[in-house]
Amino acid sequence: MSNGRSAVVVIDMINTYEHGDADLLLPSVEKALPAMGRLIHRAREHGVPVIYVNDNFGQWRSHHGEILESALAGARADLVEPLRPDGDSLFVVKARHSIFFETPLAYLLSQLDIDHITLCGQVTEQCVLYSALDAHIRHLQITVPEDAVAHIHADLAEAALKMMRTNMGATIQHSDAIQF
Rank of each mutant, 00 (worst) to 15 (best):
S89Q: 04
Q111R: 15
S110F: 00
A71D: 05
L105E: 01
A22C: 15
G37L: 10
Q111W: 03
D86V: 08
V8Y: 01
E69C: 08
V80P: 01
P104Y: 02
D55N: 10
L83A: 04
R61S: 15
D113R: 14
E45G: 01
H97A: 11
D115M: 06
S98F: 04
T16L: 06
H63C: 07
V29E: 02
G4Q: 09
I99K: 02
V93N: 10
I14D: 00
L83P: 02
K31A: 15
E81K: 14
Y52V: 00
I117P: 02
V29M: 08
G47M: 14
A35I: 04
L25H: 11
E69G: 12
L108F: 11
L79C: 14
R96M: 10
M1L: 12
M13S: 09
R44V: 12
A35C: 02
N56E: 14
A95P: 00
D23M: 12
A32T: 06
S98K: 03
L109C: 08
L25N: 13
Q111I: 07
F100A: 03
L39T: 09
E18M: 01
A77E: 05
M36V: 09
D23F: 12
K94A: 02
L26Q: 05
W60I: 05
S28I: 08
E30M: 13
F91D: 00
R84T: 10
E81Y: 06
M1D: 09
R84Y: 08
P104R: 05
V8H: 02
H64T: 09
A106D: 04
D55R: 07
G74Q: 01
L68S: 03
A77P: 04
L90E: 10
D23H: 13
I51K: 01
A75I: 00
R5V: 06
G58A: 06
R42W: 04
F91C: 07
L33F: 00
H64R: 10
N54G: 04
V8P: 01
I67G: 00
L26M: 14
